[in-house]
Amino acid sequence: MRLTVAAFSGTILGFFLGILFPTLSLTKINLQSSLFPSIGLAYVEDKYSEFSTKSIRDALTSLAGNRRSKSNGFDTLDNTKIWVPTNPRGAERLPAGIVKSKSDFYLRRLWGLPQKDPSFKPKYLVTFTVGYDQKDNINAAVKKFSENFTIMLFHYDGRVSEWDRFKWSKRAIHISARKQTKWWYAKRFLNPHIVAPYDYIFIWDEDLGTKHFDAEEYLKLVRKYDLEISQPGLDPSSSYNWQMTKKKEHGEVHKDAKERDGWCSSAQLPPCAAFVEIMAPVFSRDAWRCVWHMIQNDLIHGWGLDFALRKCVKTPHKKIGVVDTQWVLHQSVPTLGNQGQADGKRAPWEGVRERCHKEWAMFQERMANAEREYFQEMEIFPFNFSIDI
């Protein structure tokens, strides 16, 4: 009877062990104080070639660790949470050492070890929103930016591969979405966590003549005059709207200008000061972090944004300026307007221009409402409250 019971029990035990380890051939195991949870595997032979011995050993070691956690009253897989409140939102469950909250546009190799990738990293970023018809102008402009710049092209016409005719294009970043503006691209692809490695970010139009411009020399003056937001002066022969952005003949940088009567409510407010236009702005890393959050997701033309940029800089009448000794020619090529849609008897550009004006009014209203709500919440009642944008 005893032999029968022992044999039966052994058969049942062997059956359950077979279910637990159906794919592993355990050639040798070392038992420590107990069978579970302290299994030490000296060698595991894998029945399937796609799994390495080390991988299975690591998996079983992890399994043993989880069982030890359960024996101490914790269920590592289900209940225990790594909670690090200083981690970025959404990553609180991760151990802090594995969190990488920032990225970049540095190109990586498909081979070799990551730590052996080329160590040179550009310090600045320049973006152009382009159509292929402006290829010669962009080719000339890119040559004004040294290897210290990452080059990024936003393609609104879908023609990307044709740019391979230029040698520099092979190291550029290309992003294509048809009939979109640079502010649409900027909101979606220039997140502050992505562009964090760059000291300055240039967000430029495609119709700028750069004969009298050198990017490295430009940034020397930006640093010299401690500008957080800037632009090169506009050649006097350019099409321009504001005296502030027109190139001055004397001096390296100017931060204010005499505008037409009644156009400025204060000498320290746009467009007489603290003002650059949206055609060729240059942002410091810190300024862009603020501006990116201010860009509205659905307002893609950016009209009115230039009047509000000052809100992202302390003492804006000192930190926003125009560099006169490095200037550009605004050629006013209406390429993006031609990407519009004809409506009845109206040309494509007319609908585009109409939306520009509507977005400006919408942005102004949103900013005014947001500031008004903030003041009310804080129980602050500025005398004769108004917003200048």
Score class of each variant (00 low, 15 high):
101 S>W: 09
62 S>Y: 15
111 W>I: 11
22 P>C: 02
68 R>H: 09
76 T>N: 06
91 A>P: 00
79 N>L: 07
71 S>H: 06
106 Y>D: 05
55 S>D: 13
112 G>L: 06
112 G>M: 07
61 T>N: 10
76 T>V: 09
4 T>V: 15
107 L>I: 09
43 Y>Q: 09
24 L>K: 00
40 G>W: 12
52 S>A: 04
42 A>W: 06
51 F>V: 10
34 S>C: 10
28 K>D: 05
63 L>H: 10
70 K>P: 00
7 A>D: 12
2 R>G: 12
99 V>A: 02
55 S>V: 08
68 R>E: 08
72 N>Q: 15
85 P>R: 02
106 Y>W: 04
82 I>C: 04
39 I>E: 01
46 D>Q: 10
102 K>R: 13
21 F>S: 02
37 P>K: 02
64 A>L: 09
61 T>S: 10
115 Q>R: 13
32 Q>M: 11
93 R>P: 01
10 G>V: 12
99 V>K: 01
67 R>Q: 11
1 M>H: 12
53 T>L: 03
95 P>C: 03
108 R>C: 06
97 G>N: 05
56 I>F: 03
52 S>P: 02
112 G>W: 11
35 L>I: 12
44 V>S: 00
61 T>W: 08
46 D>A: 11
25 S>R: 10
82 I>P: 00
94 L>G: 01
58 D>R: 03
77 L>I: 10
83 W>V: 05
62 S>F: 14
84 V>S: 01
66 N>C: 10
56 I>D: 01
50 E>D: 14
113 L>K: 14
6 A>W: 15
77 L>H: 06
1 M>Y: 12
22 P>Q: 02
77 L>W: 08
52 S>G: 04
29 I>C: 03
69 S>W: 13
11 T>M: 12
102 K>N: 11
9 S>C: 15
89 R>K: 15
67 R>D: 05
58 D>P: 00
102 K>L: 10
19 I>M: 08
86 T>M: 02
